[in-house]
Amino acid sequence: MDMIGQQLMNAVMLGTMYSLVAIGFSLFFGTMNVIHFSHGDISMLGAFIALFFVPIITQYSVLGSVIMFIGAIVIVAVLGIFLSGLVIQPLQSSPQLYTLLATLEAGLVIREAIRLFYPGGKMSQKFPIIFPSGGFSIGGLTIRFDQLFILAIGVAVFVATVLIVNKTSLGMAIRAYSQDKEASMMMGVSESKVIAVTFALGSALAAIAGILHGTYYREVIYTMGLTSGIIGFSAATIGGLGSIWGAIVGGYLFAFIQTSVSAFVPGGSEYRDVIAFGVMILFLLFRPTGILGERQSERV
């Protein structure tokens, strides 16, 4: 029983990180109809930018961690806006294939830049432990403090994102824009502002995912965005592109599949990705709009 609980906790950790990346995919697709394939690398960038703040952490600990978190998130949010202006907005009226290629290539550039220019960038980089270590047990179930922090941050960010999108006027603008671009502009919504806010928000979430990844696994490497990107995209697709709750559900579902296969199928670790992606393909076949997705006819 505690084994199941423990594995559930493992899956929740994974799912939290996946979902944070997945939300970005969903947001970008929902508002701009683009699949931003360098989004995983943006997440990686968040972790590496956080590393620049490491000297501060060793000096001030808690305050330093907060500065690192906020600093990296803000920088990545700005970079996200910059990237959208560079590879996504100019191609808005071009065939979607162009955007797809441009974002794929942007991801490659980000990855290679870290590999080549970050000192020792080819190797894993040690990531600081920013949450208190240790933990406690309840009935055989061991819960680590860092897991609690990750979960708390994740849930807080999910709730904040949903509130921003559903309750603020900015969020209303994003939703209106995603439902009818032109009509929203006729109501006074600024297109460039919506795009900037969307990319800032999505990229900030990805940066949070990257930092949580770093501190959870205690290391980061320039290729980490590849996996998180593909999984984030898959999770957003399973959940229904365009839906924030869908992306969250998709992220956790993906993590649960992976973890259950690793944990409960003998020798399963080897096949966990095959099975998880296999399930994704089944979803695409039988429910192409995802778990919480809109009907296909409403899009397009």
């Binding site: 084994m3 493992n10 696994y217 996996t227 944990a263 020798g267 670790s269 080897e270």
Partner: peptide, 18 residues
């Protein structure tokens, strides 16, 4: 216990738990 893992697999929590 024997756990085959992919060389680039990042998350090993499930395996180590098991």
């Amino acid at each position: 216990a024997e756990m085959p893992v992919q060389p680039d697999q990042q998350d090993l929590n499930a395996e180590l738990t098991k």
